[in-house]
Simulated scan of single mutants.
Amino acid sequence: MNHPMPEVLRRWKAAFDGHRPDDMAHLFTADALFQGFGPTVLTGRDAVRGYYEAVPPGRTAQATVLHTYTIGEQVAGGFADVTFGDADGWEARVHLSLVLRHDEGRWRIRQYHVSRVDTAR
């Protein structure tokens, strides 16, 4: 099996860069757990859609897969280095942790967690 993380991240980046919250929500399982920049853990596609609707248009992401793993045929995951930015120079570097599940005929994000990387050190 080719690892699904690069393809899921490619679809995620395309939806994020295109500011397409509906497409973004469909990358996640119906029962997804989501921890973005905010303090609240969100649950489900509607919450994910709402989160991405609030992201200002024009933000983009660059992602590099760091590590991957698989658990059987239906679960995989890994870590990525992601830098979010915009044309005004705003930038945030994070580590992204994903748990993926083969769901409804495709790989979807079951758990999403970002952790800011302190670049000042």
Results as ranks from 00 to 15, higher is better:
residue 6 P to I: 05
residue 77 G to P: 02
residue 6 P to T: 07
residue 116 R to D: 07
residue 100 L to S: 01
residue 39 P to I: 15
residue 121 R to F: 10
residue 91 E to P: 00
residue 42 L to I: 03
residue 118 D to M: 04
residue 7 E to L: 10
residue 25 A to H: 06
residue 33 L to M: 13
residue 15 A to V: 05
residue 20 R to I: 06
residue 41 V to L: 15
residue 29 T to R: 01
residue 87 A to E: 12
residue 105 G to C: 01
residue 63 A to E: 13
residue 77 G to D: 00
residue 60 T to C: 07
residue 48 V to G: 01
residue 110 R to S: 15
residue 90 W to I: 03
residue 72 G to A: 03
residue 13 K to T: 14
residue 48 V to M: 02
residue 57 P to S: 11
residue 29 T to H: 06
residue 92 A to D: 09
residue 64 T to D: 09
residue 70 T to N: 11
residue 62 Q to I: 00
residue 114 V to W: 02
residue 39 P to W: 09
residue 15 A to W: 05
residue 12 W to S: 09
residue 62 Q to Y: 01
residue 47 A to Y: 00
residue 57 P to E: 08
residue 95 H to S: 04
residue 56 P to S: 05
residue 22 D to T: 12
residue 4 P to H: 09
residue 93 R to I: 00
residue 88 D to E: 12
residue 110 R to T: 08
residue 114 V to Q: 07
residue 54 A to E: 06
residue 52 Y to V: 05
residue 86 D to K: 02
residue 23 D to E: 15
residue 42 L to P: 03
residue 48 V to T: 01
residue 119 T to S: 07
residue 60 T to G: 09
residue 3 H to M: 08
residue 112 Y to P: 02
residue 110 R to G: 10
residue 94 V to I: 08
residue 17 D to A: 09
residue 77 G to H: 00
residue 13 K to N: 11
residue 75 V to W: 05
residue 37 F to Y: 14
residue 97 S to C: 07
residue 61 A to Y: 01
residue 104 E to A: 14
residue 52 Y to C: 03
residue 114 V to K: 02
residue 48 V to Y: 03
residue 15 A to N: 09
residue 116 R to Y: 15
residue 108 R to T: 06
residue 91 E to R: 15
residue 86 D to S: 06
residue 64 T to K: 12
residue 106 R to H: 11
residue 89 G to H: 04
residue 74 Q to E: 14
residue 41 V to W: 14
residue 58 G to N: 05
residue 36 G to E: 08
residue 20 R to F: 13
residue 108 R to K: 13
residue 93 R to F: 00
residue 63 A to I: 08
residue 30 A to Q: 14
residue 99 V to E: 04
residue 81 D to K: 07
residue 111 Q to Y: 05
residue 44 G to M: 08
residue 35 Q to T: 10
residue 27 L to N: 06
residue 42 L to S: 04
residue 112 Y to S: 07
residue 45 R to Y: 03
residue 67 H to N: 14
residue 73 E to D: 13
residue 41 V to N: 08
residue 104 E to M: 09
residue 98 L to R: 01
residue 9 L to E: 12
residue 60 T to N: 06
residue 70 T to E: 12
residue 58 G to R: 05
residue 1 M to N: 14
residue 15 A to P: 00
residue 9 L to I: 10
residue 65 V to E: 11
residue 101 R to V: 15
residue 111 Q to E: 10
residue 97 S to V: 02
